[in-house]
Design a protein around this nucleic acid. Sequence first.
RNA 1: CGGGGCGUAGCACAGCCUGGUAGUGUGCUCGGUUUGGGACCGAGAGGUCGCAGGUUCGAAUCCUGCCGCCCCGACCA
Length: 489
Amino acid sequence: MSKKLPTRSEDYSAWYNELVKRAGLAENSPVRGCMVIKPYGYAIWEKMQRALDDMFKATGHQNAYFPLFVPKSFLEKEEEHAEGFAKECAVVTHYRLKANPEGGLMVDPEAKLEEELIVRPTSETVIWNTYKGWIQSWRDLPILVNQWANVVRWEMRTRLFLRTTEFLWQEGHTAHATEQEAIEETEQMLGIYAEFAENWMAMPVIQGLKTPAERFAGAEETYCIEALMQDGKALQAGTSHFLGQNFSKSFEVQFVGKDNKLEYPWATSWGLSTRMMGALVMAHSDDNGLVLPPKLAPIQVVIVPIYRQEEDLVKIVEKINPIMEELKSLGITVKFDDDDKYKPGYKFAEYELQGIPVRLGIGMRDLENGTIEVARRDTLTKETKPIDGIANYIKDLMNEIQQSIYDKALKFQQENTFVVETWDEFKSQIEIGGFVVAHWDGTAETEEKIKQKTKATIRCIPLNSIEMAGKCIYSGNDSPKQVVFAKAY
RNA sequence: CGGGGCGUAGCACAGCCUGGUAGUGUGCUCGGUUUGGGACCGAGAGGUCGCAGGUUCGAAUCCUGCCGCCCCGACCA
């Protein structure tokens, strides 16, 4: 195996795949389209889970768990939903194997299920079937539930983290007495996703609405956050759906309101998946490996001792122990790497590959001078600092790095967002990449034509886009506001 | 499902065209010297060459069939 990663600019895809594997995040599994998330990758995912879960709880949500299997009849109930997911479902048809006369095992034809079970591609149907039993009165509402789960979508082509057959996510499913309340919930959760992306992942996003063509199957309105990757392609990073009364009607869920009238509750659902791991990699990493924002780094500081003799190491340990304690008491996760199987240079490269935000180096020279070497992963800069007061310095540095990674990503996003007025400009800019802001006449036909001709899709209609009359770049018809186009993952 | 490519040591590959009984890098094991940016020297372990059949005195190499994987498209909250 070569020691160098491929470079980002030469072959982005190869760089990404190699990085995900080499940094110890995940690898392909022998099972079609599925991946193995390795301990280091999972540790980052756990930090993401924790951050999101805290935000969900702070807004009154609770966790619950619903079945993996969806009876086919459930999936059929909401027509658009059924149509949208039908093409990508794994289906359980039998419940038993038996010995094959020719060796090995075979499906027992006697054990055919009367009704096929679908491995959930999403849980709206099982959950609304359950909510039927939970909701009778306005007093039962709202229901604010989230589940952490795995889902299966049988996509034709897969990519580590970005589109795997099985993936992990959270899906929130809420029920409300009024339309207004449900819309507010949808928007609130989108806001939480945006806050998570920007404050935790240090990844700026555009919040917006999907066009009807890009909407979740069965939703009245789909809100999303869209991020820009370093190769100029967009990535849908999270979605929040206003489901109207589609599911409550399909599953015949009704409640008696304060006015003693029967009503259908209003629903939302919102999800964010392990795809965010891919986003994290593609948003910040460089040719030396991952760059993790401190808030999501499983290890925030690594200390590498540099020594020749065993007694030198003892001296270093003596010096470093109180600093480790101090860092821990400041809430910083720190690892001291005295593994003598590898040389310092090897360790430096390895921790850079893993994106550890700060590396401290300490050797005899430092012990004499009362100093320590501080290396930043994000800027790849090194400086020698006095060892006194180093813990507090590191504490501040964590915040500075978090901010600096965000600023860099924001600058990249801004520099790669282009406003275009004409079809020619549009075509050439889409080829180059980035977010392309342009007028659109609002029709599905135009949207489809543009997609066919350029492979660009409307990523979203930004929530903050201002009303500004113009002409559609494709049809020349009137357009009330600009939308964001891009090629997407 | 279409178009292209690949299957040889843990990993990455060469060898195949022109058949002669398997090699390089890296990783691994042991010993020694090293240690402030991926160390060096020496010794060693590790492969039914994807599977099945055929041609041949002889097949990783040629032929046929099958299986698997990757890339590009179609598909994709």
